[in-house]
Every structure is written in C-alpha cells, then in structure tokens.
Nucleic acid binder design. Structure first.
Lengths: 114, 114
DNA sequence: CTGATGCTCAACCATTTGGTTGATAGTTGC
DNA sequence: GCAACTATCAACCAAATGGTTGAGCATCAG
C-alpha cells in the first residue's frame, strides 16, 4: 500500500519545481556525486548549490554520506515513486494500465519494495 | 512524443507543491467545478482561492470557461502526464515494468484502450 | 605545521509566495 | 432599477526562496 503523506509531497514537488534541482536529480540518477560535482554545471556559488542540495535532502530525495571532507550524495528514489504514484491517479491515460501492471506484479514477482 | 520543456515543469511542479492546489486538482478530477466550489473546502478567503486557481491555470493544469458570472474550471491532464513522464525516468522500480506492461497490454487485450 | 580544498554557516538582499481586506465589475433575478 | 451573487483586482503584509559574499571548520597533501 502506498501511503500519501501530504506534507511529504509538498517537499518533493517543491524540490522538483526548480530546474537546478531537477538537473541535480538527473546527475544523481547515474550515480553518486559530491556536492562540488553537483554544483559544477550550475552557474552559481558553491554555497547556493549547497542550499539546493539541502532542499533535496530535506525532501528525502538525496542521501548524504560524509566521507572525510567530501559529501557523497546519492539519489533516494522512494519519494519520487510517491510523487509518481500521486500523479498516476490524475493521468487517466496510464491509470487503467497501472492496475494491470500491479496485477502483473502481485501475480508474478514480489520484489522487496522497501 | 512527449516534449519536456523545462520551464513548463517548473510551473507544474510548483503548482503541485501546495496542498490546497493538489486538493483542487483532486476536486477537478471528478468533473468541472466553479471557483467557489473549488474554494469552499479550504478555510481561506475566496480571493486567496482564486489566486490558487490562477496558479493552476498558468501551469496549464486548469482550463477556465467563463459562463455568465460563473467560471467553470476543468482539469487539463496533459501537463500532469508531462510531470508523470519526467518522474518515470527516475523511478527505476517502475521503469522496467512499463515495457512488460505495454507488452502485456498490446499482446492480450487491446479492446478497452479508451 | 602550513596551505589548499570541500563544504557549511551567517548575514544580507531582492523577489516571490500565500494570505488578508476592501473595492469593483459583470450577471442574474425580482 | 436594484439587490444579491460570482469572481477579480489592488494594496498590503509576513514569511519563504534563491541568490550573494565573507568567514570558519575539518580534512588532506606536502
């Protein structure tokens, strides 16, 4: 069962409303990045990028492993799935197909869904 | 083909970051509503609700048909599909299964495809 | 130890956001 | 015509957002 805590969605959608942060999510999708690496492509100070990282972190989209003086950041997909799941209900085109999908999943393989 | 115009996603995700506006989307999902009807459940002035309606409208999520003194609002799903589609790429859990799903649907029952 | 590096913190600033109230415009019904 | 109703507009306000700069704190390399 997918729980929808409204406040959590506030944070996730807000985090994704900024193109810099969406780009960071995109970067993280292909693997871990340090804060500097996340900041590099974006024409702004490191401090500003650091704030974006913090927004992603507080939205639960980013996990940080402090490793010496380097912060290794990784993408946390669960909140994305939550947002995805919320949207699902209102994009009727996919809706019917998702039911079939879940039937398929429940019948066939039950992965660990954390 | 789904186009991703970044600025459009800014607006859509921003619009969805507010619980009042998500509730309005929910209301609209079951059919047209006037501005007053959208405002009613939310403990705020009509003017405040009207601003939320405008945010949804500017994000392309809401279409307005002015009908006498009443504004009949309806949900525009296309931007939701866009956001959904953006998220899909980062929720890998679902991603692989989409293909299986579509295979399943294309192979088995293509009678009720809306 | 010293200096450079990676990152955060604090203060500051302009703009946006989300709400208020009061006034106003157009529509409907008597 | 007039009153009621739907909705927006305008002005205002407090708080949050997104950026800056400068200082500071660990940590790593030599």
């Amino acid at each position: 069962m997918v729980e929808h805590q409204p406040a959590a969605l506030d944070g996730v959608f807000h985090a994704l409303a900024d193109p810099t942060r969406r780009a960071m999510v995109h970067q993280l999708a292909s693997g871990e990045r340090t804060v500097s690496e996340l900041a590099a492509p974006h024409a702004m100070s490191l401090a500003a990028a650091s704030k974006h990282v913090r927004v992603l972190e507080q939205a639960g989209l980013l996990r940080r492993a402090i490793d010496g003086r380097v912060h290794r950041c990784s993408l946390e997909r669960q909140p994305l799935v939550q947002a995805f799941s919320w949207l699902r209900a209102y994009t009727e085109f996919w809706d019917a197909r998702f039911d079939a999908l879940e039937d398929l999943l429940n019948a066939g393989d039950d992965d660990d869904r954390d």
